[in-house]
Write a protein that binds this DNA or RNA. Structure first.
Ligand code: FES
Ligand code: FES
Lengths: 164, 164
DNA sequence: AAAATAATGGATATTTTTGTCCGCTATTTG
DNA sequence: CAAATAGCGGACAAAAATATCCATTATTTT
């Protein structure tokens, strides 16, 4: 079976280069939020440049994503010297990953059909519906129960990394 | 919280339109395989046109995907009159979804990091690694244990649908 | 008030993915 | 062997996602 997969590797001339669970924008958004949260725990604001360096993301693109998170009231942004991005106490204690994902990728991840049919639909399920449902629910539950704060605490302890 | 999400809906001016677990190519590939398998169970070959209609996909694009599956030896293709696509007995009984996904999307879905770091890595895990791992493993197990045949049998029974 | 700083918003560019077109090859039928 | 059929392969086109540029706005410091 591993041989089979290796064989496919060579033959795969067509199709996507990368396929990930979240969009790049969302990945940057989550990583940035965790970094901002970590610094906010120490009452520090961070500039766009700092964020982009910390999470190893393109600066200008990251700017767009932070704007989106700011508009969604998940993070604060302040202009001018001493300005930058931060997360206030309330958000620090309450923001779940699901909010960031919703703010950037929308709720397709929850409502979408595994096989791309127009919305997941119990009444006319696609062939993969049953098998997919529980996985999607696990993912949803995970995103809805995981706080950004808990992730930033692990980061601070040096247990996890935002870039390599 | 529901109000929060609805609020985001409006504010969401930036970012991806659709974010799905598999690429479109892979979705078409899986749906096509299930359809071809269903017909092959009745010893019928199907043309590209039939497949595209059955799964409601763009014909020319579907052609590319079927070529890929054919090169990967998952389905057979025959030229000329009476030609078309089919799945032989062996494949019919042995093809798992994971093989189709590997053939089209590659194995990024198994190896990739949830937050987009260069490959998932136990030694230097991203902040979401632990939470993500079990979900990814569930997904992997599901794909590796689900046969195309079983899905096509449910389809034949009218329990599931390839288009709406 | 002027200068410096940092985010913002809009336009634009690049890359990737998705989708199309069309002449070619192989196969079957008559 | 000619005609019809059906997939193949390469080039091309459109759409979406990702990424960049730069002038502007808001804020702070001097
Ligand atoms: S209908 Fe496809 S996942 Fe529910
Ligand atoms: S390192 Fe990110 S998922 Fe394993």
């Amino acid at each position: 079976m591993d041989i089979f997969v290796r064989y496919l590797e060579k033959v795969r001339t067509f199709a996507p280069e990368k396929v990930e669970m979240f969009s790049k924008a969302c990945e940057y958004g989550i990583r940035a939020s965790i970094y901002i949260a970590e610094k906010s725990l120490l009452d520090k604001r961070v500039s766009l440049k700092e964020v982009a360096q910390a999470i190893n993301s393109p600066e200008a693109y990251t700017s767009k994503i932070l704007q989106q998170l700011s508009r969604s009231a998940i993070i604060n942004s302040d202009k001018g010297p001493t300005g930058g991005f931060s997360m206030d106490k309330y958000m620090l204690n309450n923001v779940k990953l699901s909010m960031i994902v919703s703010a950037i990728d929308g709720d397709e991840i929850y409502k979408g059909c595994a096989l791309g049919l127009e919305k997941c639909n119990e009444k006319m399920p696609c062939p993969l519906h049953d098998q997919f449902k529980s996985i999607r629910e696990d993912l949803k539950r995970m995103l809805e129960t995981t706080t950004v704060k808990s992730l930033s605490l692990n980061l601070e302890k040096g247990l996890t990394f935002l870039k390599r």
